[in-house]
């Protein structure tokens, strides 16, 4: 039996197939979480694997009561935050090249500059604020952010206001 056949057989198993499908559909999302919470390239890879493993473990209990993406957001953010707290890692600013290290064509330099600034700003926020801003950037409403993070809707609003203040302060400091 060849390795290819091994993978092929693996793909035919319904459960794994569904899981792989869901992961592949949402891997950009997982990847973005790793760029926010991972400390370096190696750490991001580890975190990516850990999130997939946690999703796999939770997959049996997932009963389609919530949207797949909501479920993935919840599990992935919980994994990233609890891992960070457990290991007390410090996140560093990610380089644009690291994000696209597996992509052959290099995106434009203007986007590169803006992405670096974006990650630099996010890196100054705490674990929960990172999750809130991430979900905000993912176009989630306060109610959806509340559903994913477990924070109350009003708390999400408060935290968003706090994030805005922090960003403003950071920007002002930069310009002084």
């Amino acid at each position: 039996m060849t390795t290819n056949l091994m993978y092929l057989k693996l793909q035919t198993l319904k459960k794994e197939e569904t899981f792989i499908e869901k992961i592949k559909e949402n891997e950009g999302l997982i990847f973005k979480i790793t760029t926010i919470y991972g400390s370096d390239s190696e750490d991001r890879k580890d975190l990516y694997q850990e999130i997939v493993l946690q999703l796999w473990r939770a997959f049996e209990k997932f009963k389609n009561q919530s949207q797949v993406s909501t479920w993935i957001y919840r599990v992935a953010l919980n994994t990233a935050i609890s891992r960070l707290r457990k290991e007390k890692r410090n996140t560093e600013t990610i380089s644009f090249r690291e994000i696209f290290d597996i992509k052959a064509d290099v995106p434009d330099t203007l986007l590169e500059e803006r992405t670096q600034t974006l990650y630099a700003h996010i890196s100054h926020l705490n674990d929960i604020e990172k999750a809130v801003i991430f979900l905000f950037l993912e176009d989630k409403s306060h109610t959806e952010i509340s559903g994913i993070t477990g924070l109350t809707v009003s708390n999400v609003g408060t935290r968003m206001a706090r994030i805005k203040d922090k960003l403003k302060q950071k920007i002002n400091t930069e310009h002084v």
Partner: peptide, 27 residues
Amino acid sequence: EMKKTWDELSAELANQKKLTDAIILKM
């Protein structure tokens, strides 16, 4: 502006397909 950058970044990432089979074997 952050949101705009994020959207552009997401669009770029959507084009990337990574192999997850090896991870599933690990699982």
